[in-house]
Design a protein around this nucleic acid. Structure first.
Lengths: 147, 147
DNA sequence: CGGAAATGTTTTAAGCTTCAAGGATGTCAA
DNA sequence: TTGACATCCTTGAAGCTTAAAACATTTCCG
Protein backbone atom coordinates (compact mmCIF):
# COMPACT_ATOMS: atom_id res chain seq x y z
CA UNK A 1 0.00 0.00 0.00
CA UNK A 2 1.23 3.47 -0.80
CA UNK A 3 2.87 5.40 1.99
CA UNK A 4 0.49 8.33 1.49
CA UNK A 5 -2.47 6.06 2.05
CA UNK A 6 -1.01 4.58 5.22
CA UNK A 7 -0.30 8.07 6.51
CA UNK A 8 -3.82 9.22 5.73
CA UNK A 9 -5.48 6.26 7.39
CA UNK A 10 -3.43 6.73 10.52
CA UNK A 11 -4.21 10.43 10.65
CA UNK A 12 -7.88 9.71 10.19
CA UNK A 13 -7.82 7.10 12.92
CA UNK A 14 -6.27 9.55 15.40
CA UNK A 15 -8.73 12.28 14.57
CA UNK A 16 -11.69 9.96 14.79
CA UNK A 17 -10.64 8.70 18.19
CA UNK A 18 -10.48 12.20 19.60
CA UNK A 19 -13.56 13.48 17.85
CA UNK A 20 -15.70 10.55 18.92
CA UNK A 21 -14.65 11.04 22.51
CA UNK A 22 -15.40 14.75 22.41
CA UNK A 23 -18.82 14.13 20.90
CA UNK A 24 -19.51 11.54 23.55
CA UNK A 25 -18.58 13.88 26.36
CA UNK A 26 -20.48 16.83 24.94
CA UNK A 27 -23.57 14.68 24.83
CA UNK A 28 -23.05 13.18 28.25
CA UNK A 29 -22.05 16.33 30.10
CA UNK A 30 -24.18 18.94 28.34
CA UNK A 31 -26.64 17.03 26.19
CA UNK A 32 -25.34 18.87 23.14
CA UNK A 33 -23.48 18.14 19.93
CA UNK A 34 -20.29 19.20 18.19
CA UNK A 35 -22.02 21.31 15.51
CA UNK A 36 -23.95 23.22 18.17
CA UNK A 37 -20.74 23.77 20.15
CA UNK A 38 -18.90 24.91 17.03
CA UNK A 39 -21.59 27.40 16.16
CA UNK A 40 -21.54 28.90 19.66
CA UNK A 41 -17.74 29.06 19.42
CA UNK A 42 -17.91 30.93 16.14
CA UNK A 43 -20.34 33.45 17.58
CA UNK A 44 -18.32 33.81 20.77
CA UNK A 45 -15.31 34.82 18.71
CA UNK A 46 -17.28 37.44 16.75
CA UNK A 47 -18.26 40.41 18.93
CA UNK A 48 -21.03 41.75 16.71
CA UNK A 49 -22.44 38.41 15.72
CA UNK A 50 -22.28 36.85 12.29
CA UNK A 51 -24.56 36.53 9.31
CA UNK A 52 -25.66 33.03 8.40
CA UNK A 53 -23.39 33.18 5.38
CA UNK A 54 -20.39 34.13 7.50
CA UNK A 55 -21.12 31.28 9.88
CA UNK A 56 -21.37 28.75 7.10
CA UNK A 57 -18.08 30.02 5.68
CA UNK A 58 -16.23 29.70 8.99
CA UNK A 59 -17.66 26.34 9.84
CA UNK A 60 -17.03 25.12 6.30
CA UNK A 61 -20.50 23.68 5.98
CA UNK A 62 -23.28 24.39 3.56
CA UNK A 63 -25.58 27.32 3.80
CA UNK A 64 -28.75 25.35 4.32
CA UNK A 65 -27.12 23.56 7.19
CA UNK A 66 -26.87 26.69 9.28
CA UNK A 67 -30.54 27.51 8.81
CA UNK A 68 -31.61 24.45 10.75
CA UNK A 69 -28.81 24.55 13.29
CA UNK A 70 -29.54 28.20 14.10
CA UNK A 71 -33.25 27.47 14.36
CA UNK A 72 -32.67 24.76 16.96
CA UNK A 73 -30.31 26.93 19.00
CA UNK A 74 -32.76 29.80 18.84
CA UNK A 75 -35.51 27.52 20.07
CA UNK A 76 -33.30 26.79 23.08
CA UNK A 77 -32.69 30.46 23.70
CA UNK A 78 -28.94 30.37 23.11
CA UNK A 79 -28.76 32.52 19.98
CA UNK A 80 -30.85 35.28 18.51
CA UNK A 81 -31.69 35.87 14.85
CA UNK A 82 -32.27 39.40 13.67
CA UNK A 83 -32.90 40.66 10.19
CA UNK A 84 -30.35 43.22 9.08
CA UNK A 85 -32.03 46.64 8.73
CA UNK A 86 -29.94 47.71 5.74
CA UNK A 87 -30.31 44.50 3.76
CA UNK A 88 -33.40 42.52 4.43
CA UNK A 89 -31.95 39.40 2.84
CA UNK A 90 -29.40 39.07 5.62
CA UNK A 91 -29.97 37.38 8.96
CA UNK A 92 -27.53 38.18 11.74
CA UNK A 93 -26.93 35.69 14.52
CA UNK A 94 -25.77 36.70 18.02
CA UNK A 95 -25.28 34.90 21.29
CA UNK A 96 -27.87 35.64 23.93
CA UNK A 97 -26.54 36.19 27.46
CA UNK A 98 -27.70 32.67 28.20
CA UNK A 99 -25.83 31.37 25.16
CA UNK A 100 -22.72 33.20 26.24
CA UNK A 101 -22.88 31.72 29.71
CA UNK A 102 -23.50 28.23 28.40
CA UNK A 103 -20.61 28.47 25.98
CA UNK A 104 -18.21 29.68 28.65
CA UNK A 105 -18.89 26.57 30.69
CA UNK A 106 -18.80 24.17 27.76
CA UNK A 107 -15.70 25.74 26.33
CA UNK A 108 -13.74 25.34 29.54
CA UNK A 109 -14.78 21.72 29.84
CA UNK A 110 -13.88 21.09 26.22
CA UNK A 111 -10.38 22.48 26.63
CA UNK A 112 -9.90 20.33 29.70
CA UNK A 113 -11.00 17.21 27.89
CA UNK A 114 -8.63 17.84 25.02
CA UNK A 115 -5.76 18.31 27.45
CA UNK A 116 -6.71 15.10 29.18
CA UNK A 117 -6.98 13.13 25.96
CA UNK A 118 -3.56 14.26 24.74
CA UNK A 119 -1.93 13.98 28.14
CA UNK A 120 -0.19 10.72 27.22
CA UNK A 121 1.83 12.35 24.47
CA UNK A 122 5.11 13.79 25.79
CA UNK A 123 5.37 17.58 25.41
CA UNK A 124 8.21 17.50 22.93
CA UNK A 125 6.36 15.09 20.69
CA UNK A 126 3.27 17.23 21.00
CA UNK A 127 5.28 20.22 19.87
CA UNK A 128 6.87 18.28 17.02
CA UNK A 129 3.50 17.08 15.85
CA UNK A 130 2.11 20.59 15.96
CA UNK A 131 4.98 21.84 13.80
CA UNK A 132 4.70 19.00 11.36
CA UNK A 133 0.97 19.41 11.00
CA UNK A 134 1.52 23.07 10.28
CA UNK A 135 3.68 22.21 7.31
CA UNK A 136 1.24 19.47 6.35
CA UNK A 137 -1.64 21.89 6.32
CA UNK A 138 0.25 24.24 4.03
CA UNK A 139 1.08 21.40 1.69
CA UNK A 140 -2.52 20.23 1.65
CA UNK A 141 -3.91 23.67 0.99
CA UNK A 142 -1.41 24.04 -1.84
CA UNK A 143 -2.36 20.74 -3.40
CA UNK A 144 -6.08 21.44 -3.07
CA UNK A 145 -5.84 24.87 -4.60
CA UNK A 146 -4.22 23.50 -7.71
CA UNK A 147 -7.00 20.98 -8.26
CA UNK B 1 -4.81 28.80 24.64
CA UNK B 2 -3.50 25.47 25.79
CA UNK B 3 -0.99 23.75 23.56
CA UNK B 4 -3.10 20.59 23.48
CA UNK B 5 -6.03 22.52 22.11
CA UNK B 6 -3.96 24.18 19.41
CA UNK B 7 -2.58 20.81 18.40
CA UNK B 8 -6.03 19.30 18.27
CA UNK B 9 -7.51 22.09 16.19
CA UNK B 10 -4.67 21.87 13.70
CA UNK B 11 -4.99 18.12 13.44
CA UNK B 12 -8.72 18.43 12.92
CA UNK B 13 -8.22 21.07 10.25
CA UNK B 14 -5.83 18.83 8.30
CA UNK B 15 -8.12 15.85 8.49
CA UNK B 16 -11.16 17.85 7.49
CA UNK B 17 -9.39 19.28 4.47
CA UNK B 18 -8.50 15.83 3.18
CA UNK B 19 -11.78 14.21 4.09
CA UNK B 20 -13.87 16.91 2.47
CA UNK B 21 -11.87 16.59 -0.73
CA UNK B 22 -12.21 12.81 -0.77
CA UNK B 23 -15.95 13.06 -0.22
CA UNK B 24 -16.23 15.59 -2.99
CA UNK B 25 -14.34 13.40 -5.43
CA UNK B 26 -16.20 10.24 -4.51
CA UNK B 27 -19.43 12.04 -5.23
CA UNK B 28 -18.22 13.63 -8.41
CA UNK B 29 -16.43 10.65 -9.92
CA UNK B 30 -18.64 7.80 -8.73
CA UNK B 31 -21.78 9.39 -7.29
CA UNK B 32 -21.10 7.63 -4.00
CA UNK B 33 -20.25 8.54 -0.42
CA UNK B 34 -17.50 7.82 2.09
CA UNK B 35 -19.61 5.47 4.27
CA UNK B 36 -20.56 3.41 1.22
CA UNK B 37 -16.92 3.25 0.16
CA UNK B 38 -15.81 2.29 3.64
CA UNK B 39 -18.34 -0.51 3.83
CA UNK B 40 -17.21 -1.94 0.50
CA UNK B 41 -13.61 -1.67 1.70
CA UNK B 42 -14.39 -3.59 4.87
CA UNK B 43 -16.06 -6.35 2.89
CA UNK B 44 -13.27 -6.45 0.34
CA UNK B 45 -10.77 -7.13 3.10
CA UNK B 46 -12.87 -9.97 4.54
CA UNK B 47 -12.90 -13.00 2.23
CA UNK B 48 -15.96 -14.70 3.70
CA UNK B 49 -17.94 -11.56 4.24
CA UNK B 50 -18.86 -10.02 7.58
CA UNK B 51 -21.84 -10.03 9.86
CA UNK B 52 -23.54 -6.68 10.38
CA UNK B 53 -22.12 -6.60 13.88
CA UNK B 54 -18.60 -7.16 12.63
CA UNK B 55 -19.02 -4.39 10.10
CA UNK B 56 -20.27 -1.94 12.67
CA UNK B 57 -17.34 -2.84 14.91
CA UNK B 58 -14.76 -2.27 12.18
CA UNK B 59 -16.30 0.92 10.94
CA UNK B 60 -16.78 2.16 14.51
CA UNK B 61 -20.34 3.19 13.89
CA UNK B 62 -23.56 2.12 15.52
CA UNK B 63 -25.39 -1.06 14.74
CA UNK B 64 -28.51 0.57 13.39
CA UNK B 65 -26.41 2.57 11.01
CA UNK B 66 -25.25 -0.49 9.14
CA UNK B 67 -28.77 -1.78 8.66
CA UNK B 68 -29.67 1.17 6.45
CA UNK B 69 -26.33 1.43 4.72
CA UNK B 70 -26.39 -2.25 3.81
CA UNK B 71 -29.97 -1.96 2.61
CA UNK B 72 -29.05 0.83 0.21
CA UNK B 73 -26.02 -1.01 -1.13
CA UNK B 74 -28.08 -4.15 -1.55
CA UNK B 75 -30.67 -2.19 -3.48
CA UNK B 76 -27.87 -1.16 -5.85
CA UNK B 77 -26.70 -4.73 -6.23
CA UNK B 78 -23.25 -4.21 -4.69
CA UNK B 79 -23.64 -6.38 -1.60
CA UNK B 80 -25.69 -9.39 -0.66
CA UNK B 81 -27.34 -10.11 2.67
CA UNK B 82 -27.77 -13.70 3.73
CA UNK B 83 -29.13 -15.09 6.97
CA UNK B 84 -26.66 -17.33 8.75
CA UNK B 85 -27.98 -20.93 8.74
CA UNK B 86 -26.65 -21.80 12.18
CA UNK B 87 -27.86 -18.66 13.92
CA UNK B 88 -30.85 -17.02 12.44
CA UNK B 89 -30.21 -13.78 14.31
CA UNK B 90 -27.10 -13.13 12.25
CA UNK B 91 -27.02 -11.49 8.83
CA UNK B 92 -23.88 -11.97 6.79
CA UNK B 93 -22.88 -9.41 4.21
CA UNK B 94 -20.77 -10.21 1.13
CA UNK B 95 -19.68 -8.31 -1.94
CA UNK B 96 -21.42 -9.31 -5.14
CA UNK B 97 -19.18 -9.65 -8.21
CA UNK B 98 -20.51 -6.26 -9.27
CA UNK B 99 -19.64 -4.82 -5.88
CA UNK B 100 -16.17 -6.26 -6.10
CA UNK B 101 -15.61 -4.75 -9.52
CA UNK B 102 -16.94 -1.37 -8.47
CA UNK B 103 -14.76 -1.33 -5.37
CA UNK B 104 -11.63 -2.21 -7.32
CA UNK B 105 -12.11 0.83 -9.51
CA UNK B 106 -13.05 3.17 -6.69
CA UNK B 107 -10.27 1.94 -4.49
CA UNK B 108 -7.61 2.60 -7.09
CA UNK B 109 -8.93 6.08 -7.70
CA UNK B 110 -9.08 6.75 -3.98
CA UNK B 111 -5.46 5.75 -3.44
CA UNK B 112 -4.43 7.98 -6.31
CA UNK B 113 -6.31 10.94 -4.87
CA UNK B 114 -4.70 10.52 -1.49
CA UNK B 115 -1.27 10.38 -3.08
CA UNK B 116 -2.07 13.50 -5.04
CA UNK B 117 -3.39 15.38 -2.02
CA UNK B 118 -0.29 14.59 0.06
CA UNK B 119 2.13 15.10 -2.79
CA UNK B 120 3.22 18.51 -1.49
CA UNK B 121 4.60 17.04 1.71
CA UNK B 122 8.25 15.96 1.31
CA UNK B 123 8.81 12.21 1.77
CA UNK B 124 10.89 12.53 4.91
CA UNK B 125 8.25 14.71 6.58
CA UNK B 126 5.60 12.28 5.48
CA UNK B 127 7.54 9.49 7.13
CA UNK B 128 8.13 11.54 10.27
CA UNK B 129 4.46 12.37 10.51
CA UNK B 130 3.53 8.74 10.10
CA UNK B 131 5.84 7.76 12.94
CA UNK B 132 4.65 10.52 15.19
CA UNK B 133 1.01 9.72 14.56
CA UNK B 134 1.74 6.12 15.46
CA UNK B 135 2.94 7.19 18.88
CA UNK B 136 0.08 9.63 19.14
CA UNK B 137 -2.44 6.92 18.45
CA UNK B 138 -0.99 4.76 21.20
CA UNK B 139 -1.10 7.66 23.62
CA UNK B 140 -4.69 8.43 22.71
CA UNK B 141 -5.82 4.85 23.05
CA UNK B 142 -4.14 4.71 26.43
CA UNK B 143 -5.82 7.89 27.63
CA UNK B 144 -9.21 6.81 26.35
CA UNK B 145 -9.02 3.40 27.95
CA UNK B 146 -8.40 4.90 31.36
CA UNK B 147 -11.49 7.07 31.15
C1' DC C 1 -37.00 53.43 -14.78
C1' DG C 2 -37.04 48.54 -15.42
C1' DG C 3 -35.45 44.20 -16.19
C1' DA C 4 -31.44 41.05 -15.54
C1' DA C 5 -28.03 39.36 -12.72
C1' DA C 6 -26.16 38.74 -8.20
C1' DT C 7 -26.63 37.77 -3.32
C1' DG C 8 -28.45 35.77 1.07
C1' DT C 9 -31.52 32.62 2.98
C1' DT C 10 -34.87 28.82 3.07
C1' DT C 11 -36.85 24.62 1.49
C1' DT C 12 -36.74 19.92 -0.12
C1' DA C 13 -35.21 15.27 -0.89
C1' DA C 14 -31.94 12.07 0.17
C1' DG C 15 -28.64 10.07 2.94
C1' DC C 16 -25.80 9.52 7.32
C1' DT C 17 -25.70 9.07 12.38
C1' DT C 18 -27.01 8.16 17.10
C1' DC C 19 -29.66 6.30 21.00
C1' DA C 20 -33.33 3.82 22.79
C1' DA C 21 -36.85 0.56 22.34
C1' DG C 22 -38.44 -3.61 20.39
C1' DG C 23 -38.44 -8.23 18.11
C1' DA C 24 -36.36 -12.63 17.00
C1' DT C 25 -33.34 -16.11 18.21
C1' DG C 26 -30.08 -18.55 21.04
C1' DT C 27 -28.06 -20.18 25.65
C1' DC C 28 -27.90 -21.65 30.11
C1' DA C 29 -29.12 -23.13 34.43
C1' DA C 30 -32.53 -24.38 37.86
C1' DT D 1 -38.07 -28.15 30.12
C1' DT D 2 -38.73 -23.72 30.65
C1' DG D 3 -37.95 -19.28 32.09
C1' DA D 4 -34.38 -15.69 32.40
C1' DC D 5 -30.85 -13.62 30.25
C1' DA D 6 -27.94 -12.50 26.36
C1' DT D 7 -27.13 -11.51 21.54
C1' DC D 8 -28.08 -9.77 16.90
C1' DC D 9 -30.64 -7.03 14.15
C1' DT D 10 -34.33 -3.61 13.00
C1' DT D 11 -37.20 0.36 13.83
C1' DG D 12 -38.26 5.06 15.16
C1' DA D 13 -37.34 9.73 16.49
C1' DA D 14 -34.24 13.31 16.29
C1' DG D 15 -30.53 15.70 14.51
C1' DC D 16 -26.68 16.63 11.02
C1' DT D 17 -25.33 17.18 6.15
C1' DT D 18 -25.44 18.11 1.25
C1' DA D 19 -26.94 19.71 -3.43
C1' DA D 20 -30.33 21.82 -5.98
C1' DA D 21 -34.28 24.52 -6.53
C1' DA D 22 -37.02 28.28 -4.93
C1' DC D 23 -37.64 32.80 -2.87
C1' DA D 24 -36.69 37.53 -1.50
C1' DT D 25 -34.01 41.36 -1.91
C1' DT D 26 -30.47 44.22 -3.80
C1' DT D 27 -27.53 45.97 -7.43
C1' DC D 28 -26.35 47.24 -11.82
C1' DC D 29 -26.75 48.52 -16.45
C1' DG D 30 -29.14 49.80 -20.60
Amino acid sequence: MKTELRLWLRMLACTNLVEAELRRRLRQAFNTTLPRFDLLAALDRAPGGLTLGEVSGRMMVSNGNITGLAARLEREGLVERRQEPHDKRVVRLTLTPAGSAVFAIQSAAHAGWVAEIFAGLPPHEREALHQLLGRTKSALVGALEDA
